[in-house]
Nucleic acid binder design. Structure first.
Length: 599
RNA sequence: GGCCCCGUAGCUCAGUGGAUAGAGCAACAGCCUUCUAAGCUGUGGGUCACACGUUCGAAUCGUGUCGGGGUCACCA
């Protein structure tokens, strides 16, 4: 049980004893005490005054006395300022907590419960490589999966690949027309970039043709429709739907190139999936669903044959589910997949990591499920995240202002190399160790930069800020970890064969303020995981681990571990150091970030 | 226009009912013969967009206004 929970229940119990009234945790607040006051935790008394008909002074005194009396082992003292009852936790309790948990790699994590959750993320199109926006998506998806696991859930990571549609055909047509049989191998290009280049080529050609047609006096709208390259593309989409062998073959070949490229990037990012869905398969599921909905009257058909659902009663609009020609639209496949997911995996929650421009779309999906009487409609959670914008404005693929994922990773890794070489601390590293370190630092910086902001908020990607390795950054935390490991190595070395009995007896010296603060922060880790899981918000973990690292660095400069004032202090500080390192590693792992032993 | 999200220091962000609103970056001033200075300490910097309301107490809750964004496609 966490300190906060303990204090809450002790308070409830004491209030009952004093006044004969039952309160719940929600009726009063237990906060951390602000640094300018004495104490560790604060009970805010104001909300209790009216129901108890007491003055703050009396209530504080009575409650403080009783708490101290009944839990003399736990609390050491209290003070009352205005309506705030500040409580101090005894050194013994803190020292105990340390002794029992300092070496527990699972500290703060919950045991597995029966909750099954699927997290769908990344979900790329197969016509162009991944970009900065995908990175935010992937990092959030991975991190929330790890956080939910740490909170005791059984998690399945999935991705839906958007592998069919007009955009894919565009790349295919351009390749047919302009590639002369070139392949990623023959041009030494990463597969997803290779295919993406033909997507760009298509648009260039398309624009050129439109310009020509307009020059010949055609209205722009007509020109857009009649451009030969577009007509060919539309024909290809039809051929694809009809399963024309040459088209299918080309489609498989080009998607194969893209997947190979994606896999490389995923591997470098350290991300993976338990299940990959393909839209080319799921859209059929959706079509069957629409058929059923038509039969039971949930949907209706217009004269042109298109199928609709009326969601105006729920405050939404009429929504198209199937085109007049019977082909499916975006939402069609989602309806099919949602059912499959819940039935195959027996999910308690299905999380979709998708950009916030699709909030409306996801509301429609939920409402459709509700209307069809699907029991899982309310178990759909849209983890929406804001767009990543550049300092110069939005990313637009048409204007070439997209930040490519692979380029960005290279740049971050290069930067970490440059920084490290400038500092000159790693002269004894092998080639292999150096390479690994640069990846760890570069990716760490990038992941932390994108995860430290609340997903819901849109964020601005500032290239200079993102490669900063000081302050509120991944490398700052990695550095703190490496520093602790360095202390531990030194201490071990110095002791040689001497055995330091780290689990020795009682704490007799007073804990210093920084020591207390650190232990209390360490204790909070479990609550942090709970909060991050409940809010589906990795930035909670990022903020916590930064504050922890910051605090440790202050402690580090103030107090020596290896040359502590006494053997007892040395042991306490070693325990604090080990536990801080353990929790930094654990928390960073929840963010998908590795920590180096040395840097 | 309807609906949704956002507005906190020069910049990027925490804080979502409690005490004198906090970090990082940037600026300035200090700290390496002592466990890694990718660090630490300090200074300056705020009408929490605005107004009214609820409350013992509001950056936080409600209503309205202004500003920014998203969405309302037989696009995905």
């Amino acid at each position: 049980m966490s300190f906060t929970t303990l204090i809450q229940s002790a308070t409830i119990e004491s209030l009952k004893e004093l006044y004969g009234k039952e309160f719940t945790e929600k009726e009063f607040q237990v906060n951390e005490t602000k640094p300018e006051f004495t104490g560790d935790y604060t009970i805010v008394l104001f909300s209790l005054l009216k129901p108890l008909k007491e003055s703050p002074e009396n209530l504080g005194k009575k409650l403080g006395d009783l708490l101290l009396n009944k839990h003399s082992d736990f609390f050491s003292e209290y003070n009352i300022i205005k309506g705030f009852l500040n409580l101090s936790i005894s050194d013994d309790i803190l020292a105990n907590l340390l002794r029992e948990n300092y070496n527990d790699a699972c500290f703060g994590k919950k045991p597995l419960n029966q909750t099954r959750v699927m997290v769908e993320y990344s979900s790329p199109n197969t016509n162009k490589p991944l970009h900065l926006g995908h990175l935010r998506n992937i990092f959030i998806g991975w991190s929330i999966s790890e956080i939910l696991k740490a909170n005791g859930n059984e998690v399945y990571k999935s991705s839906i690949v958007n592998d069919r549609g007009i955009h894919i055909c565009k790349s295919m047509i351009a390749w047919q027309e302009f590639a002369n049989g070139a392949t990623p191998e023959s041009t030494h290009t990463k597969g997803d970039h290779f295919v993406g280049d033909y997507y760009v080529k298509f648009n260039d050609e398309y624009k050129k043709e439109i310009k020509e047609l307009v020059g010949d006096g055609k209205p722009e709208k007509e020109a857009e429709k009649e451009a030969p390259v577009m007509k060919k593309t539309q024909q290809m989409l039809l051929d694809w739907e009809n399963g024309k062998p040459e088209v299918m073959e080309l489609w498989k070949k080009m998607n194969g190139w893209v997947y190979k490229g994606f896999d490389e990037t995923y591997k470098r990012l350290g991300t993976d999936f338990d299940q990959t869905f393909y839209e080319s398969q799921t859209y059929i599921l959706g079509k069957e669903f629409v058929k059923k909905g038509l039969e039971d009257g949930s949907f209706y058909k217009k004269e042109d044959g298109s199928v609709w659902i009326d969601l105006t009663a729920a405050g939404l609009d009429e929504k198209l589910l199937l085109r007049g020609d019977g082909t499916s639209v975006y939402i069609t496949q989602d309806i099919g997949l949602v059912k499959q997911k819940f039935e195959e995996y027996h999910l308690d929650e299905s999380i979709y990591v998708i950009g916030d421009e699709q909030i409306y779309h996801m509301n429609v999906l939920k409402e459709i499920c509700r209307k069809l009487g699907m029991p899982f409609a309310d178990k759909i959670y849209h983890l929406s995240y804001g767009m990543v914008e550049l300092t110069t404005g939005k990313m637009k693929s048409r204007e070439g202002t997209v930040v490519d994922a692979d380029d960005l990773i290279d740049e971050m890794v290069d930067t970490s190399k440059k920084h490290t070489e400038e500092l000159g601390k790693v002269k004894d590293f092998t080639e292999k160790e150096l390479k690994e370190l640069y990846e760890t630092l570069g990716l760490g910086a990038m992941k932390f930069y994108l995860l430290r902001v609340d997903p819901k908020k849109r964020m601005i990607f500032n290239p200079e800020e993102s490669i900063d390795f000081h302050g509120f950054t991944g490398p700052f935390i990695q550095y703190t970890y490496a520093r602790i490991k360095s202390i531990l190595r030194k201490v071990e070395e110095a002791m040689n064969n001497e055995q330091l009995t780290i689990n020795n007896g009682k704490q007799s010296e007073m804990l210093l303020p920084l020591e207390r603060q650190l232990i209390i922060s360490l204790e909070k880790y479990s609550n942090v995981i709970t909060q991050a899981a409940e809010e589906h918000n990795p930035s909670v973990v990022a903020n916590y681990v930064f504050h922890l690292a910051k605090m440790f660095n202050s402690f580090y400069t103030e107090h020596s571990v290896a040359n502590a004032e006494s053997e007892e202090k040395k042991i306490i500080r070693l325990q604090i150091s080990i536990m801080t390192a353990t929790i930094i590693k654990s928390a960073m792992q929840l963010l998908g970030i590795a920590v180096p032993e040395r840097m």
